[in-house]
Design a protein around this nucleic acid. Structure first.
Lengths: 210, 210
DNA sequence: CCAAAACTTGACCACGCGGTCATGTTGTTC
DNA sequence: GAACAACATGACCGCGTGGTCAAGTTTTGG
């Protein structure tokens, strides 16, 4: 059993890291996180042997939250609305968390815990998508993987203007949602990505430093 | 007049930097660029007093290419097709160039040359958008700024799978384009961003390192 | 109350970064 | 070809990073 103060410090570090990552992205230094937590740098490394470990734990938690929400929404009355709410949550995560929107393209997809959580997220998205599709609310050629990737689309579209137009991502979410409607659907020129594409990308991606 | 070999070296550095930035993103070291160019590190700093200068020059050039293409397309027969081609070019720039897709959110929007080029790009996008709108090819509530921001949307949506599914961005471009159609347009919940939003974001954005 | 285990601490290390500069080399000019 | 300016070079600097560790401090079980 861990010591009482150690457990408390662990939570302090997690909270500090979460806040710093959200505010400044993946490039925050461990020293800065330690300072915010009110502990020494060594203490941080005591609880998390490496920076990647810390980040992975936070990411796992955040993705887990999304998965939980998705599970709730699976029982909602209106499948289209459920899917929309799911997307809102996913995009909001990226729009309000700098590290999260960076991470979509890079690091920590290599971590097994994060990859497992991402897998669960994809599955949840798939189920919500299927329900919406079966209800005729969205076009037939869109998959759960598409939905997860479209999180990035809306969040990153609004990212360049940042805090100057805080809710701008909603504009692009709804624009994309109109594109998901079955009404004006033209045939898409490229097949949807498969789970294998994601794993291949995660292992092949050399990260920012080639 | 510059010396002959100096001019040649300058081009070598620009070419090397362009390739390295595209391959490895904004985080490439100046040493690496110098090595690729076959010159010493000091030579790079001789021609470009700072890393930001080098990057800005390359960005200015790339954006300039897009603007030139947009000017051509302004005279095309089919306004909707012209807009689509313009978007293809813009997204392709981001999809094939790592630094470019990172830069959308951060650095070097502070550089006056890059900002000027971005301004010209926005203007070009506005004109192409107006033509498509006047022709009834796209919904009325979409602006040129939207179009530029949607470059990010499609490129970043496909980014996580990276090289595992090379043309995937085309899928999301067409999905977004379906959302741009006037047919299934629902009212968007947030107004389009203004030019002021961009300038405010550029000056307020603290960059990756808070 | 005490000793052993758990934990914290901050100085410390090696490294790679952007950037500088004295020195040597090369292209240019008359 | 000489002499000067323009340029190339790579050792070097300060800095911040992720990560380590011996020594000191606390909590805990008996």
């Amino acid at each position: 059993m861990p010591r009482a103060d150690a457990a408390r410090n662990r939570q302090l570090v997690l909270a500090a890291a979460s806040a710093e990552l959200a505010a400044h992205g993946l490039d925050v230094s461990m020293a800065r996180i330690a300072a915010r937590a009110g502990v020494a740098k060594g203490t941080v490394f005591n609880h998390f042997p490496t920076k990647e470990d810390l980040v992975a734990e936070i990411f796992e938690d955040r993705i887990g939250g999304l998965v939980a929400l998705g599970a709730e929404l699976r029982g909602a009355d209106d499948p289209a609305d459920a899917l929309l709410r799911f997307m809102v949550a996913g995009i909001e995560l990226q729009a309000t968390d700098r590290s999260f929107c960076e991470a979509a393209t890079s690091i920590s997809r290599a971590d097994p815990r994060v990859r497992a959580a991402s897998g669960r997220l994809a599955e949840t998205a798939e189920q919500l998508t299927r329900r919406a599709r079966d209800a005729g609310a969205i076009r037939a050629d869109v998959t759960g993987h598409d939905i997860v990737l479209l999180f990035n689309a809306a969040a990153q579209a609004a990212a360049p203007v940042g805090a100057a137009a805080p809710g701008l991502w909603r504009r692009y979410l709804h624009l994309i949602f109109d594109g998901l409607a079955p009404g004006s659907a033209h045939e898409l020129p490229v097949p949807a990505p498969t789970a294998a594409d994601f794993t291949a990308a995660a292992s092949a991606d050399p990260g920012p430093t080639g």
